[in-house]
Structure formats: structure tokens, C-alpha cells
Design a protein around this nucleic acid. Structure first.
Lengths: 229, 229
DNA sequence: CGATACGTTGATTGACTTCAACTAAGGTGG
DNA sequence: CCACCTTAGTTGAAGTCAATCAACGTATCG
């Protein structure tokens, strides 16, 4: 699946700087609210400032000259964004949901270092995923990663189960995991049939067997050994 | 190709702490000299200190439980090592050549930040390579990367051409690029036949057409368009 | 109500892997 | 010095996992 970088005008139109409510309830003019599918900054342009994600999901991606896209990281609440980008942005940042961001005006060194370290750790783990994991292993890893960042209390029959809103589309997941939409979709179907996850809407996912999912993600168990016909 | 993590004993035997000559010529007891194929630190063990590579090549790698190995980065002279590893090492560091390392005892914040930023930048570019590039593109990218880190003056007929010592074996390259030994070998042969590189020994490589190589690496041109029969 | 985007599923293809055979270089020990 | 072994690299043939191509269902939206 190919995606093309948005024209620069889309970036200059942002951020919107609308006054919004912080968790503490005070109006704060510097908090940014982004609608889904808007770019926060663009690969190749002057370096963007540092942000902290308050709410929602932001994708960091790189594109090759011919349009092939690789999503480097999915960034959820609490994590930092815009670090380690050099003089110019090497990545495009795009909101995958309504997102609330807080600019970090004067980051203290330890905050910055922690953010960078986390970035390195995640990038390294992702490289291992991209270089050496099979498609079902990648999808299981992705589900666990996103569950960790976006969990929310499950309702009704699913009470007690881990449930989360899967902000990225199948296409986004494909670009994150180095796969195609079709392969991602097939893996979701297989994991669902095997009883490891459940979803009725494609974007609300419940973890039924997180440990088994973790086994698959780590390559300790193959999905075939779990098929429930 | 599968590789298994070395037993811990191999790591405890290191570093050797032999006195060596620095570029300035003074004896320095804290500089480490590693023979090829020795581990500097191991994935899962207590965090290693920071080093700067003075000479030689060090590979940073992660292994999955079943032994699949992914090399995260190849680190040459001037670059830092052991950063962003958290409380325990997430990676194994192994010398791929005779290597001289200098421990960095008390890194100043800007040095640390610069090292981390470089690590993030490289890891992100590598993720794009692993997720979205074809085998010939990966190999071309790798050759250019290593040439940048390990260039040396070419002799004889190759005078004026970029020439470098390819420390990693085909197997190491495979683990770095998410491929197999055979595929890496085939890509080298194709690049050689196309007249972009040359080598008589598999580990001494000369760049004959760096720009064409860069085009392939970026995905702007496919190797088929360059075949010289 | 068509138009568009997303998701799923099936059939087919293809790039890379796997398996296998072989060459060359380096080390060891009789 | 040479038989013997091991390791790295190359090359060919066969196999496979994921990509591509294609069709269809569904939800959203002007």
C-alpha cells in the first residue's frame, strides 16, 4: 500500500492552537488539538518542537522517494514526540485519532534523555520485529504494544478483559509492520478464529488470551498450534 | 541463519584491559582491545558502561528466544556504544574485527544526547530499510553505510575509488538486513556484475559507481536497469 | 443515492528462503 | 609437507510465505 506525503500547505496550517481543557480543568492556550489524519510536522522540513501526547494516537513515519511508507512508531498518551530528529525532520508525524498534544517548551535534560532512550529501545525492538518476525508474530506484537498504550476498561460481557481502541487502520498497521493490508487483515482473522482476540468492529479489540498472544509475539509458539476449528 | 547468544563466561572474561597506544602515542590503561568475535556485553545482563569505538567494527544485536538474530546497528570508529539500553542490556555487542574501545567515564549531557540522537536516526532509517526495501536495495544501502564508516585510501589500479574493509561476514550482513546469507551473496554478485562494486576477496570492496549505488539504495532505480551482460 | 474508503476473502504470482552441492581458504596434527 | 577438518562464500533447484490482483461487503458522507 502506497501513501504519499501531504503537501506542505497542510502542515503550515497547523497547529490550530485552540484553547482546550486540561485534565486539571484550566484553559491552556498552548495545548494543540488535532483532528484525525492531520500532519503535525513533515519529513524534510525544519525541525519541529517537542511535544507530549496527552490523548490520542500519533504515527511517526518515513517515506521513500517512490512513496513506500514505513511507520516508525505509534505514539500514545504520555509519550514524547519530535525528539532525535536532527536539524530537519526525518519523519512525518500524523494524528491517527483526535489527539491532544502539549508542546514541551524547555525540556530538562533528564526528560529529554528519557524520551530519547525510550525511542531507541522501541526502535530497536521494532527493527527486530521487521527483520526477523513472521507476519502473525508481527501482528501479535503490534496488538500487545497498542493494548499497552491504549487500554481502557471493558464493558458488559467483556468486563475484566483487556480492551482497547485500535486507532490505526489496517493500512496503517501494514505500514508499521512492513506488511500489506491483506496480510494484516488475514492475521487478525486468524487470531480471532484461534480465540486469542475478539472484535466486532475492526477498531475495537479485546484481548482474550494475552499470554498466548505474547507467546506468539515472541516466537515461542506458532499460531497453527492454537487453531480452534 | 540462526545464531545463538554466547555463554556468559565469554563476556566475563572481557575486557582485557591491555595497555595500548592512543593516537597521541601515550599509554592508556583504560582502552580496551577486543579480538574479532568477542562479546563486549550481552543482552539481558546488567547495563554496560558507555564506550567510544576508536578502531574496528562492533555489531549491536538482539536475539529472539528461538535464536533468530537481528543486528540493530554496525558501529565504526568515532561512534558511541552502550547508550539507550535501559537498566539491563537489550542488546548484545560483539566485535566483528579487532576493535579498540575507549570507555566514556562521565559523559557530558550534550555528548550523550548527540549519541542518542544519532542512534535514533540510524534506527529509524534502518526500520524503513527492513520494512519497505527490497533485497538489492538493502544491500546497496548497507554497502554505502559501511563505506561511510570504514573508507580507506584505495591502492594501485583502484586509486581514487572508494574502497573499504567489509568487516561483517555475509551472515552478519544477512542478520543486519533481515535477509539470508544466500540472498546477500546473490545481491553482491549482481551488483558486481552490474559494475557498481568490485571485490576479489569477499571482504575488500571497492565502490565503482557510488551514485548509481545510492540510486538503488533509495529505490530510485532498480538493479535490472543497470545489468551489463 | 452514488461515491469513496476501509475491510475481508479468494486465487495467483513472485521474491526470498530453504535445501543442497560445491569451491576456496585457513588451521591442525601426524 | 600434506591429509583432514572447519568455516565462509557462491551457485542452482525447489519450496513457501507474503504480495499482488481481483472481487465483494459495509459504513460513511456529500
Amino acid at each position: 500500500m502506497l501513501h504519499f506525503t501531504l503537501p506542505a500547505a497542510d502542515a503550515r496550517a497547523l497547529p490550530s492552537r485552540l484553547p482546550t481543557e486540561t485534565p486539571a480543568g484550566r484553559a491552556c492556550a498552548t495545548v494543540h488539538r488535532l483532528p484525525p489524519r492531520t500532519a503535525l510536522f513533515l519529513q524534510g522540513y525544519a525541525r519541529a518542537p517537542l511535544y507530549r501526547v496527552i490523548e490520542g494516537c500519533v504515527a511517526l513515519s518515513q517515506s521513500l522517494p517512490d512513496g513506500r511508507r514505513q511507520i516508525i512508531d505509534m505514539i500514545g498518551p504520555g509519550r514524547m514526540l519530535g525528539i532525535g530528529i536532527g536539524e530537519f525532520n526525518r519523519c512525518t508525524a500524523e494524528a491517527l485519532s483526535f489527539a491532544t498534544l502539549e508542546p514541551i517548551v524547555d525540556p530538562d535534560p533528564s526528560t529529554l534523555e528519557h524520551g530519547l532512550e525510550q525511542m531507541v529501545l522501541r526502535a530497536q525492538a521494532h527493527a527486530t520485529l521487521l527483520g526477523r518476525k513472521t507476519a502473525p508474530e508481527r501482528v501479535a506484537s503490534a496488538i500487545l504494544d497498542l493494548a499497552g498504550q491504549f487500554v481502557r476498561p471493558a464493558r458488559g460481557a467483556k468486563r475484566g478483559k483487556l480492551c482497547f481502541n485500535l486507532h490505526p487502520t489496517r493500512g496503517d498497521l501494514a505500514d508499521w509492520l512492513g506488511l500489506t493490508v491483506e496480510t494484516v487483515s488475514r492475521c487478525f482473522t486468524r487470531l480471532k478464529r484461534a480465540g486469542l482476540i475478539d472484535f466486532t468492529h475492526p477498531e475495537i479489540v479485546t484481548l482474550l488470551q494475552p499470554e498466548a498472544l505474547a507467546d506468539i509475539a515472541a516466537g515461542n509458539r506458532s499460531i497453527e498450534t492454537l487453531q480452534i476449528p
